[in-house]
Amino acid sequence: MLKELSELFWTFAKVGVMTFGGGYAMLPILQREVVENKQWATDEELTDYFAIGQCTPGVIAVNTATFIGQKKQGIPGGIVATLGVVFPSLVIISILAGFISSFSHLPLVINAFAGIRVCVCILIFNAVVKLWKGAVTNKLGLIIFLVVALGSMLFDISPVLFVILAAILGILLVQIQGKNNGKEASAK
């Protein structure tokens, strides 16, 4: 138990230290460490956790860590994985804040992050391609993806709204499919 918990802690600390920016930048790192290396979750589960993290309170990175930790080792796992993901922030910020007050104005930092931003775009693109297989499985999925991606980019709509509407749509579909079962079968 202790060994598993310490593995959870350090794996998520590693994910935390390699995440730059918001929760989404964490996705490619999570895919590599948690899905491919440790096989603690699948790509599909990651998309589920991100969707839930969108409409529940708190930082998405933290919510995802709690989910995966809970799945592996119950409640202690959830807590330990979450502490792991915030641990590097605590150490790094406490060190930096003590020394440099205008860290982000240094030319070195500005130029490095302009480069990192390009990389984060490509990594997120690759992550979306990987998620695509499990997430967009039919025409309806494609339509939802396009509406959400464009809607969220072009208009100032809260992600929470998209997530709630999608969940309602999913629930309504069960009703509709229940009624049109015959049609559905012949369409396939």
Partner: peptide, 29 residues
Amino acid sequence: YVDSAFKCLRPTSTGLIAASGLSVAASAF
């Protein structure tokens, strides 16, 4: 019902991630 909700949530989640990537792209490119 939960299963069907998740079938719609997955493309939604993927769409939100793509949109966030594109907004990073706007400042990166």
